[in-house]
Design a binder for these strands. Structure first.
Lengths: 211, 211
DNA sequence: TTAAAATATTAACGGTGTTAATTATATTTG
DNA sequence: CAAATATAATTAACACCGTTAATATTTTAA
């Protein structure tokens, strides 16, 4: 009995080990360059064994995807203690930018790669708390801003979507190299991420006038 | 002599035919699903022959990438006749959204996929007019808005970057499925692209107050 | 101890981008 | 015109990829 449970645990450990190795390889080499075969080799397992633990590569990606959302969610969570809605909104933007820059591969997986709809569709029990939380927190913050007199006459959903789109747009353009590209031609490009922060601060200045 | 030139032209035609087939396959099945082999099969050519005309798959992608920018650039070009800077800015945003929705694969190639830096780096003669033009037009429009009294005290580069980031963020989130995903949970999702246009109109309302 | 279930492996399918070596086809030169 | 050369296209091959089916091994239950 005791031994049985111990083995069960070791079996579950394999599942986690696969994910861990997948994550490391992925964070080191990117998602495209991380193959089932390489994961298996690293863990000294046959490639096909992976399929006993994960349906396919997409499921591994999706599991990591969820992990990323949990990570970002935690960073958002601590901001709930910021009383002022507007201050919180600013902080959320900066946290988001920071997260994207410092976890480029996670960000890629979470927001840039196409959603693996197969798994998203399997949200029977409304699984997917992590992602929802992040946007929910943003929405609530926008509502708090409205209570503080901001965004009068504007729909809160649209405002939240605007904020998200703007920071995501900045991150996405930066991470995919488009910013360095166009920017280097027209804008004199400052320190890597300062460009993003500076742009966001301009946005904040605009929001600030929306009182 | 005459025949020689004719043959040269036929050779050049192969080059164009490859690109045409690549584009069709790509627009039909997406970039990932479009392989050198499939292109070659469609054109009744050996796969390796492709490599006599294009260095690798990336070069084909880059050529199409440029074509997409030319397409978008043309749509921007006609807007130069809109006198009011602010009206032009609004129009540019809508054109951009429209372009992304109606040419999803081109948009993917142009703005979502990673830049093929190998080719970008080869812009010795500052090749890359197409892309530069688009951002240049935006920047000029922002400057015109400033002349009309908008965006006082804000850096024009940052404002332009903000506008671009916002519309790109909307398109990117939409095309990659993230919007349907989160939106369907929090926002009651309207007609596909109306969600984007509605969000953009909210942004415009915000900009409008920036006078 | 033996039957059944869980775990892991090998072999294989059909695909990918790309390179090297080889053949066929034009073009130029002797 | 014929031979030599350059160009164009091909076949064969390499080293990968995700994934499935059939098989072997190990662990659990009766």
């Amino acid at each position: 009995m005791g031994r049985k449970e111990k083995d069960k645990k070791q079996i579950e450990d394999v599942r986690l080990r696969i994910l861990e190795v997948a994550k490391n390889l992925f964070l080191k080499n990117g998602f495209e360059a991380t193959s089932i075969r390489k994961i298996a080799a690293e863990i000294q397992l046959s490639p096909t064994t992976i399929y006993l633990y994960y349906k396919d590569k997409g499921e591994i990606a999706y599991t990591l995807h969820k992990e990323g959302f949990k990570l970002l969610g935690e960073q958002f969570f601590v901001l709930q203690h910021v009383e002022s809605g507007f201050e919180r909104l600013k902080a959320m933007g900066k946290v988001y930018l920071n997260f994207a820059i410092q976890n480029t591969d996670f960000y890629q997986l979470m927001f840039i790669m196409k959603e693996p709809i197969d798994f998203i569709a399997d949200k029977d029990s409304c699984q997917w708390e992590e992602g929802e939380f992040a946007f929910g927190a943003l929405l609530q913050t926008v509502l708090d801003c409205k209570a503080e007199g901001y965004f009068k006459g504007l729909n809160e959903n649209n405002v939240a979507l605007n904020v998200w789109s703007l920071v995501h747009g900045l991150c996405s353009l930066k991470l995919q190299g488009h910013l360095d590209h166009v920017a280097s031609a027209h804008l004199h490009v400052p320190e890597d991420r300062d460009l993003l922060e500076e742009a966001f601060e301009t946005f904040v200045m605009m929001l600030d006038k929306m009182k």
